[in-house]
Write a protein that binds this DNA or RNA. Sequence first.
DNA 1: TAATTGTGGACTATTATTGTCCATAATGAG
DNA 2: CTCATTATGGACAATAATAGTCCACAATTA
Lengths: 157, 157
Amino acid sequence: MWTIIVHNEDDVTMEIIRRNTDYSIRALVHLALNPDIEVTAGEIAEEQDVPLEYLQKILQKLTRGGFVNAHRGAYGGFYLAREPKDINLLEVIETMQGKLAMNKCFLGKDGCPRAPKCVLKYNWLQLEQTITSHLSQITLQDLVEQVKEGGLPKGGG
Amino acid sequence: MWTIIVHNEDDVTMEIIRRNTDYSIRALVHLALNPDIEVTAGEIAEEQDVPLEYLQKILQKLTRGGFVNAHRGAYGGFYLAREPKDINLLEVIETMQGKLAMNKCFLGKDGCPRAPKCVLKYNWLQLEQTITSHLSQITLQDLVEQVKEGGLPKGGG
DNA sequence: TAATTGTGGACTATTATTGTCCATAATGAG
DNA sequence: CTCATTATGGACAATAATAGTCCACAATTA
């Protein structure tokens, strides 16, 4: 018995997690590893190897999203607004990349006038539900524990 | 066509299914609705409202991917290379957009030196498995049936 | 042989994402 | 009060990904 395995001709992979989300997670992990103090964008940028100016934009989003609090002025900086166990991956991803929803119709160029009866749509929503459920169960705390267990420098791992 | 639509603060949607996959599915549905004959790219383009030149590129990929067969010359065109029930969404998506892979490490800028022990990675692969399984269970036949049941013009629905 | 139709490559256009810059507001230290 | 510090917000630029176009050519058939 044999199988033909077809790889995409260019061997490209479709990425779900973009760089801004990646950077966000690094920043959040960094803050979680440094509780009770305020960490500047500059320090996070250097430690986590993220372009400072871009990180600032990202931190603004995280601030507006209620993940971190910011404090201006000398000795100011950022700190987590919630417990690491109360921050999950889904909300970070959705804050950075938009809300996860797979319910756009597959068929045809004219939209779907009979969505309520559509079997596929049901299938779809089910998948969406599975994905969001999975992602919402991974917390910042989980990530931090992985880092600590690994004993790696700078939160890398 | 499905899309992971995400809303974030700017009401942006994060699309998982790109336009080329969308077009691909329209083309495949069109061919499935017209069995036993060869349909030109021009006809598909017009019926399914897809730019002809771009569709040609897409049909080339579908040909190389083994989804359709092509026949040059007068009265030539495209036709399905397999039964609609034997074509599933996952393979179409991966052919057009690349292999779905969520196993990129989350933590740190230095990659993951201890991947084998990583709890998150396990979680990740599990989610990937769930997604691919779901998608592979939706066939072109399912889509065609939806279209036929809907009785919509031009395969729309 | 001529008309038709797909192929392959190179090219351009458009859009999304990432990254940068600067003026300004808030904060705290001296 | 003044200055250094740090985040904020908006605009802008660079890059990358995606979508779309063009053209010469190969295959096919009337």
